[in-house]
Amino acid sequence: MTPATTPDQLPALEALPDLPRDDDGPVFREPWEASAFAITLELHAAGHFTWDEWATTLSQQISAAQAAGDPDLGNTYYRHWLAALESLVTTKALATPEALDLRAQDWVRAYRSTPHGHPVKLKTG
């Protein structure tokens, strides 16, 4: 299966004015940020939401955080990104908030029961 998002089919990143980027494109501070970015691109490419919907959800999230006192120095950008993505995923009924919480807890248990260096495998339930 080829990826739905190819380099020349990047959605309109300029619709996201605060996106941390340099001349060559987006930049990330931590690997999870790149993963959150990739999930968003893939869900969009698969037609689960339009890029306008995404940009709106993200900017609402950022405005809400700013209203709550976030200094918005760029280092929290992907926190807002992830919160917006979770919100859109649940609004679109792709997953429930409860399922996301449970799954995160499952991962914590999986990490804590795996010796370091071994692949961490998910044990759900």
Binding site: E30, I39, R103, P115
Partner: peptide, 24 residues
């Protein structure tokens, strides 16, 4: 050596991304 210690879970943000990704 990688020792016998258990794996420390990543940051909360990384866990949330992992939860989302694995469900999707």
């Amino acid at each position: 050596h990688h020792g016998d210690e258990m794996t420390e879970p990543p940051s909360e943000m990384a866990l949330r991304v992992q939860a989302l990704e694995s469900l999707l």
